Simulated scan of single mutants.
Amino acid sequence: MQMTGGGMGRQRRLASGAGLDVRLSWYEPGAHMDRHVHDRHQISWLLAGELRERSAGREFELVDLSRGVKPAGCPHANVYGRSGSLILALNIDPGSDLCDAIPGLDDWRWSTTDGERKAVQDVLAAATMLAEGDPVTDLALADLVAGAHLAPGQTGDAPDPWLSRVRDWLHDDPDAHDLSGLAAAAGVHQVHLSRSFTRHYGLSPSLYRLRCRVSRALADLVGGASLAAAAQTGGFADQAHFTRATRRQTGLTPSHLRSLLAA
């Protein structure tokens, strides 16, 4: 396994035991990971930033909160977001009793649904309590994971070229275009643009714009910037606005994320 074009900026093990290991990782903007395999099953959530993952001739391009499942031994390659990627991963030993409690661990897939947000925030809350020494047992965390529903995967189909261009425009300069301007540049009706974008990427263009701002600000924050400076980099009105947007997206405040990744 080799990282290119950047690397893993920070990683924190939040909890381990009973066949389970939980890690929070920050990947630097533009990082790539060559084709590799894991010796454990993995359930992972993309909390912030973007991710492209390839395996077995298919590719998932993820821009919203998404859950991925990779069986042990599944060959895959990753390209992380242009503003970095924040990923929570649960690594499960193939011989663990948890394998019987979590169906679908033998099928590589990603899914983006509204139900993922509640599931990941429950798991993240329990894991951070463990990391900070609160009296929560590994069994409680395992129960949360075992009870989480694994939604059906997406297809991995490639987007239309015009849709990819719209996403690039929004990512590279979130404040430069309104919906009508984007639709005119893409040559489609703005309602068709909004519906197509939401259907393929799992969130509306306006929410994707906000996600890009959070990711850009987090990259600055993990790089050592102050909360105020990171908020300005992301185009937020103030530090409070940055904090609210990050908590809504990831379940944690910027300062909490910074302290976890600095440990």
Rank of each mutant, 00 (worst) to 15 (best):
D138E: 13
G115N: 11
A127H: 04
D100P: 04
S111N: 15
A131W: 09
L150S: 07
G95K: 12
P152L: 00
A151E: 09
A142Q: 02
T128M: 01
R109S: 08
A140Q: 14
I102H: 01
L144Y: 13
G153K: 00
L141S: 04
S96M: 08
A131Y: 10
V123W: 01
T112F: 05
A151M: 03
C99G: 04
G147I: 10
S96V: 12
D107S: 05
W110F: 15
V136A: 02
P152H: 01
W110A: 01
A119D: 06
A148F: 03
G95E: 14
G133R: 07
R109K: 12
A151F: 09
H149L: 06
G104R: 08
L139N: 04
S96L: 09
L150F: 00
Q154D: 05
P103Q: 11
T155I: 07
P135A: 10
G147K: 07
L124E: 03
A131D: 13
S111P: 10
A101Q: 13
V136M: 12
A127L: 07
M129L: 15
R117N: 12
L90M: 14
R109A: 04
Q154C: 05
L98E: 04
Q154A: 02
P135M: 09
L141T: 06
L130Y: 05
R109G: 02
D114E: 15
A140G: 12
N91W: 12
R109F: 11
D107I: 08
E116P: 09
E132V: 11
V145P: 05
L90V: 14
V123M: 11
H149M: 08
E132D: 15
S96I: 10
L139T: 08
T128K: 05
L141C: 01
N91P: 09
N91I: 10
K118R: 14
A131F: 10
V123Y: 01
L139G: 02
D114M: 00
T128W: 01
L98R: 08
L139S: 03
R109Q: 09
S111R: 09
D114A: 10
D114C: 06
L130E: 02
A142F: 05
V123S: 03
E116M: 07
L105D: 00
E132G: 11
A127P: 01
D97Q: 08
D100A: 09
S111M: 12
